[in-house]
Amino acid sequence: MFSRDIGIDLGTANVLIYVKGRGVVLDEPSVVAIDTQSGRALEVGESARRMVGRTPGNIVAIRPLKDGVIADFEVTETMLRYFLNKINVKGFLAKPRILICTPTNITSVEKKAIKEAAEKSGGKQVFLEEEPKVAAIGAGMDIFQPSGNMVVDIGGGTTDVAVLSMGDIVTASSIKMAGDKFDYEILNHIKKKYKLLIGERTAEEIKVNVATVFPGARKEEIDIRGRDMVSGLPRTITVGSEEVQGALEESVAHLIQAAKSVLEKTPPELSADIIDKGIILTGGGALLHGIDQLFAEELKVPVLVAEEPMQCVAKGTGLMLEHIDKIAKRKLI
Rank of each mutant, 00 (worst) to 15 (best):
L263C: 05
D223I: 14
G167T: 14
N58F: 12
K277R: 15
A258S: 10
D72G: 08
I87H: 11
A286H: 08
V109G: 06
I143E: 04
I186D: 05
D72F: 05
F127S: 09
E116M: 12
G57L: 11
I59H: 07
G283R: 01
I154V: 10
K331E: 13
K95M: 08
L288Q: 00
K181V: 15
A314Y: 08
D180K: 08
T104I: 12
E77P: 09
A139T: 09
I106L: 08
G246Y: 15
I190T: 01
A258P: 01
E130I: 06
E74M: 02
K300W: 00
F144H: 07
R201P: 07
L263T: 04
K120T: 11
V230M: 14
K315N: 11
A162N: 13
I34Q: 10
G138Q: 07
E249S: 14
L80P: 01
A71M: 06
I59A: 10
I280P: 04
N85V: 05
K124N: 13
G318F: 00
E46N: 04
G91K: 10
V305K: 04
V44Y: 10
I100N: 02
V244G: 11
L99V: 05
R49E: 14
V210I: 10
T104F: 10
D72Y: 03
A211S: 15
L128T: 02
I256G: 00
G156L: 01
K181L: 12
Q37A: 10
I275P: 02
E200T: 08
N209R: 15
I17D: 05
F83L: 06
R81Y: 03
E200H: 12
Q311R: 15
R81H: 11
V126F: 02
C312W: 07
I198S: 08
I190M: 03
V151I: 12
R81G: 10
P215S: 00
T36P: 07
A136Y: 10
I143K: 06
G283A: 00
G246N: 14
T212I: 02
A203Y: 07
A61E: 02
A211I: 01
E129M: 13
L233V: 12
L233I: 05
N209M: 15
M310V: 14
G122A: 03
L255Q: 00
E297K: 04
I186Q: 13
P268V: 12
S147I: 14
R97I: 09
E242D: 15
H254E: 11
S165T: 15
H189V: 01
G53S: 01
L84N: 09
V303F: 02
E43V: 07
R97Y: 07
K66M: 08
D153Q: 04
V89R: 03
N85W: 04
A178N: 08
Q311C: 09
E243T: 02
L187G: 14
K331C: 07
